[in-house]
Design a protein around this nucleic acid. Structure first.
Lengths: 137, 137
DNA sequence: TTCATTGCAAAAGTTTTGCACGTGC
DNA sequence: GCACGTGCAAAACTTTTGCAATGAA
């Protein structure tokens, strides 16, 4: 599901969330939305500086933090790995292959939890790990 | 579920997994088993040096790695937090309160995944976050 | 005895912070 | 214009590594 977003659409999206639409944030979000590869900070940084070498890594950290805080992207952590980010905020699971390191999305049912009654659940994450079909052989 | 394990029992457990039963590893495992608070490396280190000040932090890292590798403990990561460790290796979910930072265990069904057919799943983790009943008020 | 493990110190990374400057609203 | 965001450099941390000494089997 690769999305081709217009800059103005992203600006509207940001405004709805109360985020200022700076070129840096837009570039970071655009990269995440168009490249659903669950990249880490370093990867995002390396990509965005290709189009604008002036971007600083601090800003990439800031932008990803801001986008996470307002729910536009989801931080993905699995198996002691660095944090990766996902612009697909719908409920889905993440599978990480221990061999190739790739992260796959998968569908899973949103099951009920027992033992945390009365808790306010804001975020649900399902992480699996193991070997993908390519690496299993 | 606080477990009071004898050192010899832990030694047997380690032998089954092919781990050498060093005092350091035993202390680390014992602390995790008896204190199901999902501590991070720092917390484990601070506790084990109370009983034996000579233990080094490197060894705590090594021990937790070894215990993780053989499946005696599970690494828990949630919300950009530091890695925490859990000696309860049965399938259960973890809920992290955004306010107090405490991690709660909860029961959840082991639901089927769609889209990763043919993958070898070695580990399943379910992480929720939000506000616990104490902090919600 | 042997080889994995330990512990120290140093290195390697990653993430955060302080602050002057720039910029979206 | 003002408040917020950016970017640089340095600081603060966390985790890893190299290697000699130690100790479990």
């Amino acid at each position: 599901m690769v999305i081709d977003l217009e800059t103005k659409d992203i600006a509207v999206l940001f405004k709805e969330k109360g985020l200022k639409a700076t070129p840096q944030r837009i570039a970071v979000y655009k990269f995440l939305a168009e490249n659903p590869v669950h990249p880490d900070v370093e990867t995002v940084y390396n990509q965005v500086i290709k189009e604008n070498p002036a971007f600083s890594k601090t800003t990439v950290y800031n932008s990803l933090q801001a986008l996470s805080d307002c729910g536009l992207v989801i931080p993905v952590m699995i198996d002691n790995e660095k944090i990766r980010y996902d612009a697909d905020t719908s409920f889905h699971g993440h599978f990480r292959c221990e061999k190739c390191g790739k992260i796959y999305d998968f569908k899973c049912s949103d099951e009920k939890a027992q033992g945390i009654d009365g808790f306010e659940i804001r975020q649900k994450d399902v992480y699996y790990s193991g070997l993908c079909s390519c690496c299993k052989i």
